[in-house]
């Protein structure tokens, strides 16, 4: 039986969705309010690190492998640099050109207005925040999970 007591497990499993929602809110509103992809991703990854502490890294490693986290992180990196390369094709034809700046980022989602303080503004910035957020979530969670798992393997004496 790995992990901490039943009280800690219940509490951390209960507040994990709230931490995740808050981090995703920080990522999604990165171009409007303080925060962004890095900060929101760190919040979500710290919530998952709490799960690793409460339930034990061996239990967590049975649920999700670091290979999948690595794939998610690479997808975030590819999305980020892909959006940067799309700037070479459209708009100002520069690397990192913000070619969506005067348009709707998400079509059919403009009912709440076109001005500032609208989540559907700022061109590429929300998409880049999302890509960097995915990258930071998966990357930090993979670091914490891999190191905790190796430590518990050494403690058990089953490491090769």
């Amino acid at each position: 039986m790995s992990g901490m007591s039943k009280i800690v497990k219940t509490i951390s499993a209960t507040i994990l969705p709230f931490i995740t929602i808050y981090g995703l809110y920080i990522i999604a509103h990165g171009h409007l309010t303080p925060g962004g992809g890095f900060q929101g991703g760190a919040i979500v990854a710290s919530g998952f690190a709490m799960i690793v502490v409460a339930f034990g890294s061996i239990w967590t490693m049975e649920k999700i492998k670091e290979k999948h986290l690595s794939i998610i992180e690479s997808l975030g990196a590819i999305g980020f640099i892909g959006l940067a390369f799309f700037g070479l094709l459209f708009g100002a034809k520069m690397f990192f050109a913000n070619f969506l700046v005067k348009q709707d980022v998400i079509p059919f989602f403009n009912q709440i207005g076109q001005g500032l303080s609208n989540i559907n503004t700022a061109g590429l910035l929300p998409l880049m925040n999302l890509a960097v957020g995915l990258k930071v979530i998966a990357g930090l969670f993979a670091i914490v999970l891999v190191m905790a798992y190796a430590t518990s393997k050494i403690k058990e004496g089953t490491a090769k």
Binding site: H31, L32, T33, P34, G36, N98, A122, L125
Partner: peptide, 12 residues
């Protein structure tokens, strides 16, 4: 950029 958050606009 259309962004209210100047820091994110500078960073991204």
């Amino acid at each position: 950029t259309g962004a209210d958050n100047g820091v994110t606009a500078v960073v991204f």
